[in-house]
Amino acid sequence: MIKNEKKQGMSLIVKNTVRSVNGLIFLFGIYLTLYGHTTPASGFSGGIVFACVFILMTLTFGKGTVLRMLGKTTAYILNCTAALLFLLIAALGIAFSGFFFDNFLEKMYPTISFKFFSAGVIPFYNIVISLYIGAGFFMLFIILSVRRVVDVEGKRLLVSTEFFDTMEGESG
């Protein structure tokens, strides 16, 4: 249904720049997430960087490209799954050592070092939270940008512009 996909979005210079920079920003998000327990970063910052990558792509290439890559439904499922996984890791503490939110891995295998594999369950929390925050903020942006109030026969209706082309002439 999407017409003139090549004409959507911003100009050629912006598109090419974003294409080359996109992967690096994504890599930075992965770095922030995975090294959240040793360096100044955490899952929150990493997740927001993930969301920003997709928002940048929405603004440059138009909605169609991004919705095909990371659909709305996928974002919902990711968001809910990450929330449940967070709860699951916290509940595993009860099973292994008797306390909610207990760092049971660190108690079983003590690791006092700057190494990548350290700090027990904190890296897992970081990964789960980055997925949660990334999917959540992407959802928020998609909801705000896809829905629109339109006048139809004198009435103001909320209309989804997900499947047809209205980005033309309003990008930027």
């Binding site: 327990h37 040793t38 360096t39 970063a41 955490s42 968001n79 760092n103 660190e106 904190i122 949660y132």
Partner: peptide, 29 residues
């Protein structure tokens, strides 16, 4: 020593104050 995490902020928000973080995530949800 107790958490093994060199980033003390991550240690606090995910270990010592985990329930706070959980409530924060619920509000965002």
């Amino acid at each position: 020593e107790e958490t093994g995490s060199r980033n003390i902020l991550a240690a606090i928000i995910f270990d010592y104050r985990g329930v706070d973080t959980f409530a924060q995530l619920c509000a965002l949800f």
